[in-house]
Each structure stands twice: as C-alpha cells, then as structure tokens.
Write a protein that binds this DNA or RNA. Structure first.
Lengths: 345, 345
DNA sequence: ATTAGCACTCTCATTGCCGGAGTGCTAACT
DNA sequence: AGTTAGCACTCCGGCAATGAGAGTGCTAAT
C-alpha cells in the first residue's frame, strides 16, 4: 500500500498535511474539497480519508473531528509529496552576511549562521561540532596561564580552537615554553589529534626522549594534556521560538522536556548524529529519532563538511508539524554555506 | 510608616511573605492566625492586614481573596525580616566539588558552579563576565590559523582565554610568528588590555618601529586585533528551572519574554550590572531592575572578584516569589567561592 | 465510482448555580 | 482602647446542562 498509493489519494494526503501544517488544527473533508477546486465532493474526500486512515497515514483525535496526519503521514509527505520552496534571494543574502559577520574563530561563524537560521525558520536551531579528535591540527601553542598552570591551545584546520589546562608546572621559563611549543608544533603539523596522541606516545618510548630535556618535557606535557578525548560542542540558538509553536506553548510538560534536553549536550548529540554522517539532509519525524524522551519532535538536520570529512551538523528542532517545504531548503542552504565557509579556512 | 512598622505588624508581614513564598497562593487571615499560634484571632490579623495594605506592602487580587505581598512587601521583608538559612554542609561540598571539576580554563569553572547553583536553587542561574578590557594580561600568543589567518590568543590573570582572528597575513613564517609573539608578550606583561592597546599605539609612533620589521609587524597586527573592545560573556544554566515556577509555567507570554531576554547578552548584562560593582549581594525585586521588558522577575546576584577588581557577577533569575532566605546565602557562597578560586590563578 | 442527504457524535463555549474561602464591619467584650 | 465573635457580602472555581458547529459514516440515488 505504501508505495502503491494512487495519485488522487496522494494529492489528498498532501493537502491535508499542508493544511495541518498551516493551521495546526484537524482538517475536515469540506476544507480539502474546496482546496482542490471542488473537483471532488466532500463525501468522496471522506472515503479517501477513510482509506488513508486505514493505511495509517491519518488519525482522528475523536469521531467528528477532522483528520490529523500521523508520523507515517508526515513521512510519506516528506518522501514523496513535498514541493520544496526555493529560498528568497534576500534570505540567502542574509545567511551570507551572517556568515561574513562570524569572522572570529569558527564558533562565532557557526553561532551567527545558526542564529539566523533559527530566525528565518522560526524554530530552535542547533549546531553540533563533532569531537575534534579526527580533525587535522594546524598549530599548537603553550602559554603561561598561572603560577602553576600552562595552557595548551590547539587550532584545527577550519578554525576551531581548543584549550586545555595543564596543572602544576611551575619551573618552566618563557623560553622553555617557546621551545616546547615549537617542538610540539612540529610533531602536530598535518596530523589529527588522534594521530598526534599516538605519535607522542611513540616518541616517549624512544631513547632520545630520555636525554633531551625539552623534548621529554614536551612529550609528557603533551601526553597529559591530550590524555582524554576532546568533547564535541553544541550551540543552540532561538530557544524562544519553540514557544511560537502552539503544540509546545500549550503543554508545559513537553516544554520542560525539551528545555531539559537542550541542557544536556549528550541528548542533542544523539538527536543530530544521524545527520552528521550523511551529506544529504535528514529528517526525523516524531518517534523516528533515537531519543526516547522526545517522541514528539522533529529534527531537520544536515551535516557540513570540512574537506572530505564531516565535522558536524546543523539543524532545526521543532514540532512534527513543521513547514518542511520551507525548512528543508533552509537547512540545506545553511549546511552548504558552512561547508563552503570552512573550505577556505 | 516604612521604618516605623511596629513589631507585631512586621511579624505578620513576615508570615504572609513566607507563606506566599511557599504556596504561591494568596494567604488569608486564618492561616496566619494559626501560624502564629492563635495568639491573635483572624479578625485582628485582618485589621493588621488592612494596615499593611494601606501601607503598600500587600495587595488583594480581588475582594475576598487572601493577600499577596507587593514589591514593596518583598523589599521590606528582604531588608528587615529575612532570617537567612545556613547552607547545609552537603551543599557547600557540592559547590566545592563543582568548582574543582571546572579545572579547564576559567569558563569551565564558572559554568560548573553556575550549573550547580541553578540546581540547588531551582532557578535559572546566570554568570556574567565583564569585558576583559580592565583585566591584566598574563600572556599572548600568535598562532597560524589558516593560509591567510592568524589567531591572537590572550590569556588573562584568572584564566580567561580569548581569541581574535587577524585576516590576510600570508607571508609570515612560523619563525616570524614566534618572534612577534615574544615581542608582544613582552609588551603585554602585567598590563591590562586597555593599557596594552595604548602602549602599542605609543610604540607605533616611535621611530624604531619603522625600521625593525618584526617590531613593526607586531605592532600593526596587535593594533588591528585589539582595535575593538572585547565583549563580556554570559553563561546561563538551568533555564528549564523557570518552568518549575507556576507563575511562569502558566503564562506563556512571560515565559517568552524571559526566554527572549536570555538570548540577548545585553539584556542579561543590564540585569546583572548593578551587582557587578558591589561586593555585597544585590536583590532586585520586580520593577527594581532596570530592564523594562522584565518587570516581574527578581534577580539575586553578587559580584565576584579577581584580586581587587570585580570581574563579573553570578546570580539567579526567577519570580519575585523566590525563597530569598535560602537563595541569598547560596548566591553569596557561590560568589565567594568563585572569588577564592580566582585568587590563586 | 461519485455524491447528496441525513442521522449521529463529539467538542467547545455559554450559562446558571452552588459552595467555599475570605473579607469588612459592627457590636460586644476585656 | 484594643481585641474578638458574628454576620452579611463578595468573588472565584467547579460542575452540570444546554445548544451550536463541525465533521463523520452510511445509505441510496445518480
């Protein structure tokens, strides 16, 4: 049945979904009949609706309310019926400008784009940056950060900056630091974080490390600082937009669940990680996402790349009843924008 | 009248405020009479209540509801009647542990403490970090961040790290960068950001800068990177807690206003800047805060110091009906904790 | 196969009607 | 003179009854 939905039935489904997206109300047979130019009478529509309900695409909140698309209904709509809108020139320009303003380090860029995306879509926007473990280092530097503290700063290709503190190193002079930095830089060049760590451990095993003070020191400090994997990052913008959606605004419980989820990095990661691996846009409707606590939200997200490797994903989080025809192109555009921005970094 | 409130009246006010804090419901004369051990009959309490209402400390939502404290009522309570609770040993320990876990750069520390504070208080917690302009530099470093990009990293006393990108510098070798870094470090040592900027401009004027390539380059780059003032930062944790408060959970509009406010750094700054200058805890009740969009919230905040100078403030944002007797000591403790943590950084 | 017609169902807003909580006032009491 | 019992009064919130409206499913006619 799923693939074999006849044309007319599909058109009815499409109208129902679109009307529901626009109004957030159950939609009745009369409305659809009118919308389709009276070609079919309400009674006919009702028959079709009954079929669709049987097929699992529609549901009735109660007898004698209109119909509401189910998760499967939305799914079918997205996969087969969706007519993407093209972005307005102005919206693209705005996104470009936002990307241009994010001229600080990478996180600024990402935050600006995310913020604008959330404004344009009227949804909460999320960007995740995967753990930089697999990313290629551009340079590292050690800096004095306190009497007993050294800061290790790492810059990745693409412009991501990280710092980690190393505690309890008091006897190093500025000169030492420079030398150690230089040596580490040499080791790091062109390697990923993961590779660098391995390399450091390898070097530590070698004879030479035991005799050369600077080198030995560099290696042990490097090993300590990089001991545990760098976590990824999450940026959320436009949280307030979820209150714009009646389905959330009216239900404090849902709202609470979502806001709590926003406070847990790991949840957001789980929500978006499917999109990360893929280059094409991913839409999870309701139960399709892997986070049980949030069975009633949709995620529209797409990975963005840095050269050949995926570094993260950008997306929107909102109610199942989202305007996908508009939101999908938006997210897609934002993702490719990020990809191109990172290209020449 | 304000200062001349007689003892008995004050006690009644105190009970009303406390009961209201606990229940979020208007409180009636019977309740108070019982609470005070029947020493006074409801009728007497009613008389006193009428006086308090006349004095502006109480209000009635409607005839024949109980009374609700006004802003002035809360103010009086906070200033004269409040009996601070002492923190539980366990809570202090938790805060210390949170501070200990924040062993990365300063922002991690602050985030952890803020997060726990919000949990303990069941309110949203906010930390602002003032612009680092007045803070003393510990070290600076230039790092390659792209073909045409250099990253200037600055570490402040206290462990705050900042970066700024300098665009379009392609011809510098790693060696050059090191030299320039070293020179800038020399200039920066012990100065505030503000002073450093002035110093750079002064040096730029001197003869020597024109001849020494490294020096000249260092100065122009420094000047460019530091051209505009570094912004402060805002960390917000526990947003979901505001939904725990019935006064917000029930009113979507208020909720929206608050969430929107949370998305604007500048608003949060205005909300907390009074606390920043002062070493003692500040409480603004309702209209007392300077942000017109948020007339119905309270802010309990305290500055924290770094040596002699204030570097920011930490506080809670919630409904006017907050449990001040508990929340004030909590914020105070968190602030001094931050202050001591920053002492040895 | 489609549709007009109709009976039926369910929701939602409106109305009217208590009961309860709480007040303000007055008159009696200490 | 301050306190209190008593009482009439007000207002809210919940509940049931009602009716309009929207929408359905079924049947019979086209």
């Amino acid at each position: 049945m799923a693939s074999g939905m006849d044309d007319r039935t599909a058109r009815v489904l499409r109208h129902i979904v679109e009307d529901y997206i626009a109004t957030a109300e159950p939609v009745g047979s009369r409305t659809i009949s009118k919308k389709m130019g009276q070609a079919l009478s309400p009674a006919t529509i009702r028959n079709i609706m009954a079929d669709l309900e049987e097929g699992g695409y529609l549901a009735q909140p109660h007898t004698s309310a209109g119909r509401v698309p189910t998760g499967a209904g939305f799914r079918y709509y997205i996969d087969h019926l969706l007519a993407r809108q093209t972005l307005a020139r102005g919206e693209m320009d705005q996104l470009h400008r936002a990307a241009g303003e994010g001229n600080g380090p990478a996180d600024e860029l990402v935050r600006q784009v995310s913020r604008l995306l959330s404004n344009l879509a009227h949804q909460a926007s999320v960007v995740v940056v995967s753990s930089p473990e697999q990313q290629v280092l551009r340079s590292v530097s050690l800096m004095r950060a306190g009497v007993e503290r050294i800061l290790l700063v790492t810059v990745m290709r693409g412009g991501w900056v990280q710092h980690r503190l190393i505690e309890g190193e008091r006897d190093l002079t500025g000169d030492d630091l420079e030398k150690i930095s230089a040596y580490l830089n040499e080791l790091a060049g062109g390697r990923t974080l993961l590779q660098l760590r391995a390399r450091i451990l390898a070097e530590l095993g070698k004879e030479k490390a035991r005799y050369d003070r600077v080198m030995g020191r560099a290696l042990t400090m490097g090993a300590r600082a990089l001991a545990d994997a760098a976590p990824g990052e999450v940026f959320i913008e436009g949280r307030a937009n979820i209150l714009e959606q009646p389905e959330f605004a009216e239900d404090v419980h849902r709202l609470k669940r979502i806001l709590r989820a926003f406070e847990e990095k790991s949840v957001i990661f789980r929500l978006l990680d499917r999109a990360m691996e893929s280059r094409v846009i991913q839409v999870s409707v309701g139960l399709e996402n892997t986070v049980e606590e949030l069975p009633d939200i949709s995620v529209v997200a797409s990975g963005y790349q840095q050269g050949a490797s995926s570094v993260g994903s950008i997306g929107l989080i909102g109610p199942v009843r989202m305007d996908y025809s508009r939101v999908i192109p938006l997210v897609e555009y934002a993702a490719t924008l990020l990809t191109t921005m990172f290209e020449d970094r």
